[in-house]
Amino acid sequence: MTAAAQPPAETVKGKSALDLGTLLFASIAIGIAVTSILSGVGTSGWAVMAACTFAYSGTGEVAYASVIAAGGAMTPALVAAMLVSSRFGLLAMSMTGRWKAPLWERIVVAHLASEVAVAAAIEAEPRGEQAARRAFFELALCNTAGWIIGSGIGLALGDVVGNTGRIGLDVVFPASFVGAVVNGLRRKDSTVAVVAGAGAALALTPVLPPGLPVLLAAATSLLAMAAPAATWRKPAVS
C-alpha cells in the first residue's frame, strides 16, 4: 500500500483524550442537572443513584419527575418514562451485528446504547468493526461514569445549583450530541434522516404524549433510505 492510499492520520486514531475528557465533563453536568430535577420531586438519594446507574435514561428520569411534579400518580409517571425511553430500544437495535460479540457483550452493548455512543460507533465504522467497537465503549464508559459521578455531585450539592436553567444546564444534554446531527448533514441520505426526524418530532409534539413523537420520528429513516448514500459534493481540497 502506498502512503497516498492510506487514510489521513486524523481518521485513524480513536477519540482524543480531550474529546473523552470533555464528554466526561458534559456527562457530569447532565448528571447534576437531572439529579436536581429528580430531587426536586422528593426522590431519595439511593433512588437517584440506582436510577442513574441501572436505568441510565436521563430523559426517562426527567419525564417521570415532571409527571409527579404536575401532581400525577406513579403509573402515568412510569408510562411517560417508558415512552421517552423507548428510543433506547431502537438505539440498541441499531447496534445489532456491528461486530462479533458474545452474549454478555451484546447485553452490555444494548444497555449502554446511548445517543453519543451509537453516534460515535457509526462515525467510526468506516474504519472497521474494531474502531466502531472501541469508539462505542470509550464514549459509553465516559458517558456512564460522568453520569454517575454527576448524579452523586448533584445529590451532594442539593439546592446549591438552584435553577438549572439559569446557568444553561438544560442545553448541556442536547448540545452533547448535536455534533452527530450536524455531521449527518454532510451526506444526502442522512440529511433526510436528520431533517425529517426533527420535523416529524416537532410536528407531533403538540398532539401526542411526550416520548411518542421521538419514537415515531425514527420511522423517517425509512424515508431517508430513498435518498442516495452520497455526500452533497465531492470533498474540496482543504
Binding site: 453516534a119 416529524a200 418530532a201 421521538v214
Partner: peptide
C-alpha cells in the same frame, strides 16, 4: 440512518 433520525428528533 435510524439513530440519526432519533438523535435529531
Amino acid at each position: 440512518l435510524m439513530p440519526l433520525s432519533i438523535v435529531s428528533a
